[in-house]
């Protein structure tokens, strides 16, 4: 009996090919969609604010791109699992849940790359910050990406059909993108309902990022709390995702 040497890196690469590279190559419309996706709200906010919220909006669009990666991942994973049964073929293969999920997360990132490239160029043009600010924003983006990917993977394992999928997408969008002040400072939300925004982890991410680029002044204690809450939420979600996700049926 001969056991082959498994190339784990190629398992990750396979997901990137299927869910990003081949998709954009064979369906170029997805490339166009990936480029323009984060710009709808960005343009709207810039127009309505007469350019006042330009830098916050760009930074908000970056956060949205990361959140969208998780939402898209959830849709794609559910689609591949429920409609194509590819996940069943992978469970009974040398692929592991970790390499598959990592690969799909990388695919989500590759899908977001066109938009991220444009947003990065805009950031360099319109956002003034120092190295610490830049690193802070990158860390926040990485955390929110990890959060949305873990959430997307976990929800996909529970989703059994397209209706559930839609429901999950709606809930995710509301929690992560709608109630959080991503494109504007939290002070724009009336004080009486401001606490609702803090139900979303994206709010803490946005506050930290807005503070880093100088568009929001947070006290040291508020900033510390934001970091603690954001990291804690990501950590807890990761643990829940690992424990509760169903890679295969029980």
């Amino acid at each position: 009996m001969v056991f082959m040497k498994i190339n784990r890196l190629n398992q990750v690469y396979a997901s990137v090919l299927i869910d990003a590279v081949y998709q954009m190559k064979n369906y170029p419309i997805t490339l166009v969609s990936n480029v323009i996706a984060p710009f709808s709200v960005l343009i709207l906010i810039i127009l309505v604010s007469h350019g006042q919220l330009l830098s916050i909006s760009i930074e908000g669009a970056l956060i949205t791109a990361m959140i969208s990666s998780g939402v898209t991942l959830q849709i794609d994973l559910s689609h591949i699992k429920n409609d194509f049964k590819l996940q069943d073929m992978l469970i009974s293969s040398p692929t592991t849940a970790f390499t598959y999920t990592l690969g799909m997360a990388m695919a989500a990132l590759v899908n977001a790359l066109p938009a991220l490239t444009v947003l990065t160029i805009l950031s360099f043009l319109f956002i003034r910050t120092n190295v610490v600010g830049l690193l802070t924003v990158l860390t926040v983006l990485a955390l929110i990406f990890a959060f949305s990917v873990a959430l997307g993977f976990m929800l996909s394992t529970f989703s059994t059909d397209i209706q559930q999928n839609r429901a999950f997408v709606s809930i995710l969008t509301v929690i992560l993108a709608t109630i959080a002040p991503i494109y504007y400072p939290i002070t724009y939300i009336p004080a009486s309902i401001r606490d609702i925004a803090y139900l979303s982890p994206a709010t803490y991410a946005a506050e930290i990022a807005q503070n880093a680029i100088g568009d929001l002044k947070l006290s040291a204690s508020d900033l510390t709390i934001d970091w603690i809450v954001l990291i804690a939420i990501c950590g807890v979600l990761f643990i829940i995702a690992i424990k509760k996700s169903h890679w295969s049926d029980p």
Binding site: R8, Q11, I18, Y22, F84, L86, P94
Partner: peptide, 22 residues
């Protein structure tokens, strides 16, 4: 089981073999 519609047979089999660890 259904094929992923946006792939070609070559891409489908190639990707699956990468998943298999080749």
């Amino acid at each position: 089981a259904r094929l992923v519609p946006w792939l070609t047979p070559r891409q489908t089999i190639y990707s699956y073999l990468l998943y298999r660890g080749f």
